[in-house]
Design a protein around this nucleic acid. Sequence first.
DNA 1: AAACCCGAGATTTTCGAAAATCCTTGTTGC
DNA 2: GCAACAAGGATTTTCGAAAATCTCGGGTTT
Lengths: 214, 214
Amino acid sequence: MTLAEKAYLSLRNDIVRGDLKPGGALKMADLSARYDMGFSPLREALSRLQGERLVISESLRGFRVSELSLAEFEDALRTRLVIETEALRLSLRLGGDDWAAQLVAATYALKLQAERSGGDIWELETRHHAFHRALLSACGSRWMLDFFEQLYMATDRYRLPVLVGGAGGGGRDLVAEHAALADAALARDETLANRLLVQHYEATAATIRARHGA
Amino acid sequence: MTLAEKAYLSLRNDIVRGDLKPGGALKMADLSARYDMGFSPLREALSRLQGERLVISESLRGFRVSELSLAEFEDALRTRLVIETEALRLSLRLGGDDWAAQLVAATYALKLQAERSGGDIWELETRHHAFHRALLSACGSRWMLDFFEQLYMATDRYRLPVLVGGAGGGGRDLVAEHAALADAALARDETLANRLLVQHYEATAATIRARHGA
DNA sequence: AAACCCGAGATTTTCGAAAATCCTTGTTGC
DNA sequence: GCAACAAGGATTTTCGAAAATCTCGGGTTT
């Protein structure tokens, strides 16, 4: 793996996790020291992240971590719903045994991690991401999957602080929600699966809104 | 504007127009000579274009213009339809007088250019792009607009050779199609506008499919 | 004859300094 | 006192060479 790729993954990770604060300036000298590499791979990574809206740059004034705002969150979430709705529908139609088995596995792994008291929050997050990816993975559209990944990262920046702060948020049972969604998907019940997905999003949106107001 | 931005725009333009051939290797030395700049801004631009799927890179083997394939085209087009369907619906609900006026202007400019015999094909293409952008511009979602732009470029790579080769393709009346779509949009007829959009896509897909088979 | 290895040349990737630009601060002129 | 301006420092952006890696062909071995 090239340094440029490492820079991309490291920066992306640090931004999504909030280690690099929204609005904060990303000075080349600092980054060079932090990640122990020259300017070239860093610039390359930053300009890629700009395309994913995780950083912004003003000409000749360098890069900054992009700001968080409720409006931006709502936009990303509803766009994600548009994409996921269609991708889910396609997955239910096209998914074979491998897809079903992977979905069962992802659901189970998510449950295990969620029920492990004192478990790592980042590990849980990885499982959550994997679940949603598994759900859509059979849609057969690389564009939709790519967009899903981008939007997932964009919305995750808002959800992670909530996760780190309090528990699940608003008395939700994350495991039950996802298990129900998986069951509907495995039963190929498009209508139910879609309704559960929408509810899942509504609940997430409500949690973030509440947090943002507080 | 920085050199990196110029490199991005130039490369993107040259790839979409087909001046840089699909599958062709993009050697740094060649690009450096062609665009008269060093490696840094070029690499930055290429890695951005990789995110938009216009180029691909293998580690330590440089960049290539991404290949064209019918499957890839169909995927991009149907994803575009998912995004545009929703963005169109939102635009019809949210669009004010400015949006309506801009749409009328874009429709008229498209018509003028299309009817100018012997007109520049690239100018026509710019107007076509502007029309579709105007149609969706009031949707209020930056994510959807961004995705639309990406997908438009991805699909345009397939449509442009057809435009350059023969005329409109398959006896279609492009002007009438777009005018009808604009009328439905201005009348806020969501159902009709959506149907026309779907038809527009079907026709485009049919043209490309025929061309690809031939 | 086929497979393998080695080295020269070609190419990508990275670095660090140079050039260009921006920001701050102190000074001048009104 | 205050605005305009200029010098100096900080920072970004770009370049070109160095380092790292890959590719291709010839020669050797089995």
